[in-house]
Design a protein around this nucleic acid. Structure first.
Lengths: 205, 205
DNA sequence: GTCTATACTTTGATAGAC
DNA sequence: GTCTATCAAAGTATAGAC
């Protein structure tokens, strides 16, 4: 409608499909996920929840994978816009906790990541490859700053810590879903403890 | 309900179906995976490679998921039997390196784990839930021993380290497949470095 | 631009014949 | 024990109505 987005895809020619309607579909699809978990993810189920035919969805997304990736990206950006920006371990911990609280989001993420490893995956591979690279770069910068300022031990590469944290967070959410007695926040706090600089003064708890 | 009467696949003598033929199927299926990667995982493709119909496979496995879980379990047990037993971080590192060298095994693992999170998953959920629990217990015992013997810092819970290591290893393999410049062994070595006990007696202050 | 109708192909799964 | 036959559901693709 009139609520046009700022991120401008330039002229309308660049985005071959309707942007507003696209957004409606994604919003509704996320609601479906919240209600039915990661089950009704088939094109026909999502379309039924929207009151349209499954073929209509393919007018806005080239494939089911592309739709689901867009759904996850949309959900992630919504969360990011609704929470104060953090840095380092806190940002990942906060995201992990938010993830496991939304039914189906971890299943969706895990399924899409697994699919992105397949040879024929194109959209998913590109998206998650970029996402991981962006997360690594952001966290690496955070950690290098922490190391420079003496808030983190500097005897290990910041980039390795970034990779480890992302990997640990992803794996932790899965283990937590299968066995909730595995602490999510507490385990990530332990990871943070491993990063404390030697002999640093105890900060306010 | 009560269908959890040991439907485990790693051990023998569980299903009322031919055990020997079952093993043949699994052996051949693993070969198919090594050749064609994680693609031909449909029942019909596997059956074609075996020279039988897809319905024949369902005579030995109740579902596709059960077959694939059995394939993964079989592959993992084969690897375990072909390598010297290790402990702690080394065991996980070795397993991770072996995994990424087999085309399709990480895809298979990731896909099955993601599927095990679904509500309707029964076999997969049981298998991976047990697998994670077993790995956690094993590693926790290793780390507690290391802590007792002064080979690992003792200011963090051994169980948290176990959870983190498993999670990090799983997530790392995925990141490595998407971006091989992410070091696998080197990153896990950094994790091990985080666990080293504080160096006593070196500092003069 | 938006959507329905339709059809093609592959999939997992089941039933019954040999 | 293994097959053929068959089913329902799925992703995908095209044609065409408004």
């Amino acid at each position: 409608m009139e609520d046009s987005v700022g991120p401008l895809l330039g002229r309308e020619g660049l985005q071959p499909k309707g942007v507003a309607r696209r957004r409606e579909i994604l919003d509704r699809a996320i609601e479906v996920f919240r209600e039915r978990g990661a089950d009704g993810t088939s094109l026909r189920r999502i379309a039924a929840a929207l009151g349209v035919s499954h073929a209509a969805l393919l007018h806005y997304f080239d494939s089911r994978e592309q739709l689901l990736v867009a759904v996850y990206a949309h959900a992630e950006s919504q969360r990011g816009a609704a929470t104060p920006p953090r840095a380092g371990v806190s940002s990942i911990t906060e995201a992990a906790v938010a993830n496991v609280e939304v039914p189906g989001i971890v299943q969706l993420y895990s399924t899409l990541v697994a699919a992105s490893l397949e040879a024929d995956s194109e959209v998913g591979r590109q998206y998650f490859s970029d996402r991981f690279a962006r997360l690594r770069a952001q966290l690496t910068a955070d950690f290098e700053r922490d190391q420079r300022d003496g808030r983190m031990r500097a005897d290990v590469p910041a980039e390795h810590i970034a990779v480890l944290l992302i990997a640990a967070s992803d794996g932790l959410q899965i283990q937590w879903l299968l066995e909730p007695s595995v602490g999510l926040e507490s385990t990530l706090r332990t990871f943070a403890a491993l990063l404390e600089p030697p002999r640093a003064g105890v900060t306010g708890s």
